[in-house]
Simulated scan of single mutants.
Amino acid sequence: MLFGPGTQEEIELPSDVDDDLDFLSTPRRSVKRALKFSPAQPKSTMPSKTVHGARMVGRSRIPQKKPSIKAGQVSKRVTKPNKSSKKVATHSKTDEQIDTSALDLAWSALSQSKGRRAADHQIMEFYSRPRLVPMAASSGMTGQISLDLVHGWNGLDPEHQALACRLLGQLRPQFLMCSPPCTFFSPLMKMWNFRRMSAPDIRRRKKAAVGMVEQAVDSCLAQHRSGRYFAFEHPIRATSWEITSLRKRVATSGTFVVNFDQCQVDLVSPLGQPMQKRTRIWTNSPGVVAMFESKQCTCICEHRRIEGSELGHSLSKWAQTYPPKMVKCLLQGVSRDIQP
Rank of each mutant, 00 (worst) to 15 (best):
F175W: 11
W318I: 02
I281A: 04
R204Q: 10
P270V: 04
T26A: 09
A106E: 06
L147M: 10
Q73E: 12
E233N: 08
D148N: 13
Q144S: 09
G272F: 03
F230H: 03
R55Q: 09
K36L: 15
R249I: 08
S186F: 01
K93W: 06
W192A: 15
N284K: 03
K87P: 01
S75A: 13
V51A: 14
R305C: 03
Q273H: 10
K66A: 15
S198C: 06
D22C: 01
W192F: 13
D218V: 09
L221K: 09
V78P: 00
N154D: 15
A162Y: 04
S38H: 11
T239L: 09
L147G: 06
S44L: 13
T7P: 03
V265C: 14
S146I: 02
T252Y: 05
F3K: 12
F260K: 01
T298K: 14
S139L: 03
K86P: 00
V51T: 13
E293A: 03
F3C: 08
S44N: 08
A199Q: 13
L149T: 08
G72K: 02
H121F: 14
L315F: 04
R225Y: 08
P323K: 01
K83P: 01
Q170N: 14
Q64L: 14
T94L: 12
K317N: 14
A54K: 15
T283C: 07
L103N: 08
H151E: 07
Q97D: 12
R278H: 11
P270Y: 00
R117C: 10
G115H: 00
S240R: 03
P27L: 10
K325Y: 02
K277G: 00
S108H: 09
V88D: 11
R117F: 09
S294P: 01
R59I: 11
I300Y: 02
Q41L: 15
L267G: 08
H52M: 10
M46W: 03
S15T: 11
L315R: 09
E10H: 04
M46T: 01
D20K: 13
T50K: 06
S245M: 10
Q332A: 10
T239N: 11
Q223M: 15
Q97R: 15
I202R: 13
P81F: 03
T183A: 10
V133G: 04
F37I: 08
S219R: 12
S294Y: 02
M291V: 05
L110P: 06
R305A: 10
C297G: 08
S253F: 07
S186K: 02
L156A: 07
S138R: 12
M197N: 05
I145K: 05
I243E: 08
M191N: 06
M291H: 04
G211Q: 00
L246Y: 04
R280K: 10
A222H: 13
L13I: 12
P5L: 13
A208H: 02
L176Y: 02
I98E: 14
Q339L: 12
V31Q: 06
V213C: 05
L103K: 04
